[in-house]
């Protein structure tokens, strides 16, 4: 296995630039999940936006594990939600991590699956075309053109 030093140096430089770009983007708070734009309307400081799956069901509501801050919240509601349902919740936070719902939206998991399967099909097309003309040489760590 042989890797030319200039490729390695360039690779480290590009990876570092990519990391800095991503870090800067995340720290500046630019990201806005387009699927929760409607929920975010009217989002103020005393409100909380939760994003995750239902992990437990109670008589007065359910528990959601918020993936953003890796914390479980007790959501008080009369709505019947089944276990493992993915949801976005805009709510007000009370003591003991209790949340009162203002707005709630379920994940459209069927859309995600649809995109996944179509992308899988396209991946097969891409790999078929790509591997017809190119191959990986593990000794040189290079992708070379087939003759």
């Amino acid at each position: 296995m042989k890797l030319k030093p200039n490729r390695l140096i360039l690779g480290i430089i590009f990876l570092s630039m990519l990391y800095l770009l991503c870090y800067n983007y995340a720290s500046e708070g630019y990201y806005q999940d387009n699927s929760v734009i409607n929920l975010l309307t009217g989002y103020s400081e005393n409100q909380i936006l939760l994003y995750g799956h239902v992990t437990d069901i109670y008589k007065d509501g359910f528990e959601i594990y918020n993936v953003r801050d890796k914390t479980a919240y007790h959501v008080k509601t009369n709505l019947k939600i089944s276990l493992d349902t993915g949801i976005y919740i805009l709510g007000t936070l009370n003591s003991n991590n209790e949340v009162i719902i203002i707005k709630m939206m379920k994940f459209k998991s069927e859309d995600v699956l649809d995109v996944f399967f179509r992308s899988l099909f396209a991946s097969i097309i891409f790999l078929t075309v790509f591997l017809r003309y190119w191959k990986f040489n593990p000794k040189k760590i290079l992708i070379i053109r087939r003759k």
């Binding site: 770009l21 991503c22 983007y25 995340a26 708070g29 594990y65 993936v67 890796k70």
Partner: peptide
Amino acid sequence: GIYMHDFLNPIHLPIG
């Protein structure tokens, strides 16, 4: 359960 949308979103921008 890993939320990386805000960190990895620049990949879906021209510069990334």
